[in-house]
């Protein structure tokens, strides 16, 4: 028996928005420790890794490990039926081919049950090595989304350069060049507005705007985003999901032909 209850169903709605542009389907691996998902996008360029810890749920029970293959477009249709303030419970029997999403209004006067068929997906898990990154940058997630969106107008790629002084995002193409520099903030009223840099070595890497824009769909999950970079290894873009977990996206830098 698997049962997971979230008072804020909006969290799962936002998680879905954060993955459905990259993934058509994915396996939600449920265990005693929580719900995990790891999947590459269709072109195998980027990797999405989601972790929702069992202790972050309002109620969580998973007697046997369960892998739920889910069509994300179908799940999205169901999640659209939930109000943001509804309480969500996901339920499945052991070895089930169905998952039930139950939504309850706050006053418990309306209860909705949606059953969805599960799929058998060939899942390939990748081993992500422990890495000490040369630069770890934290910045407001809305700022990151805005920068990536703005620079996407100039070209297919954005160069992210990090030094102790700050971060520079650059793009260039037929219409011209664009540079956006962010300095490390010295003092801000709110932590979520801060730009912080932990740097061992300066780094400058080129990334595909298209994927960064897809990662930025996670912006509603967290006020801050963390970028971890080292030369010649994939960038990690991480959004914390409240006290329940995180979503991480991995994208290899472009290399000169």
């Amino acid at each position: 028996m698997f049962e997971a209850r979230l008072v804020q169903s909006s969290i799962l709605k936002k998680v879905l928005e954060a993955i459905k542009e990259l993934l058509n389907e994915a396996t939600f691996d449920c265990s005693d420790s929580g719900i995990q998902l790891q999947a590459m996008d269709n072109s195998h360029v980027s990797l999405v890794s989601l972790n929702l810890r069992s202790d972050g749920f309002d109620k969580y029970r998973c007697d046997r490990n369960l892998s739920m293959g889910i069509n994300l477009a179908s799940m999205s249709k169901i999640m659209k039926c939930a109000g943001n303030d509804d309480v969500l419970t996901m339920k499945a029997q052991d070895n089930a081919d169905l998952v039930t999403f139950m939504f309850e209004s706050q006053n418990q006067e309306k209860v909705m049950d949606y059953e969805m068929k599960l799929m058998n997906l060939d899942q390939e898990h990748l081993g992500i090595p422990e890495t000490d990154y040369s630069c770890v940058i934290k910045l407001p997630s809305q700022e990151f989304a805005r920068i990536v969106r703005d620079l996407s107008q100039f070209g297919e790629s954005v160069v992210i350069s990090c030094t102790k002084e700050g971060i520079k995002f650059s793009a260039g193409g037929d219409i011209g060049n664009a540079n956006i520099k962010l300095a490390q903030t010295s003092n801000v009223d709110k932590d979520e507005d801060a730009v912080t840099i932990e740097m061992q070595e300066p780094v400058s890497l080129t990334f595909a705007c298209r994927y960064l824009n897809s990662f930025a769909k996670a912006t509603p999950l967290s006020p801050q985003v963390q970028l971890s970079m080292s030369a010649d290894v994939p960038l990690v873009v991480e959004y914390k999901i409240g006290d329940i977990g995180h979503i991480r996206y991995y994208l290899a830098p472009k290399i000169e032909d």
Partner: peptide, 14 residues
């Protein structure tokens, strides 16, 4: 022209 490597070139299948 810059090339986009696959993520599988960095992370091996487990």
């Amino acid at each position: 022209m810059a090339l986009q490597p696959s993520i599988t070139e960095y992370f091996a299948t487990r």
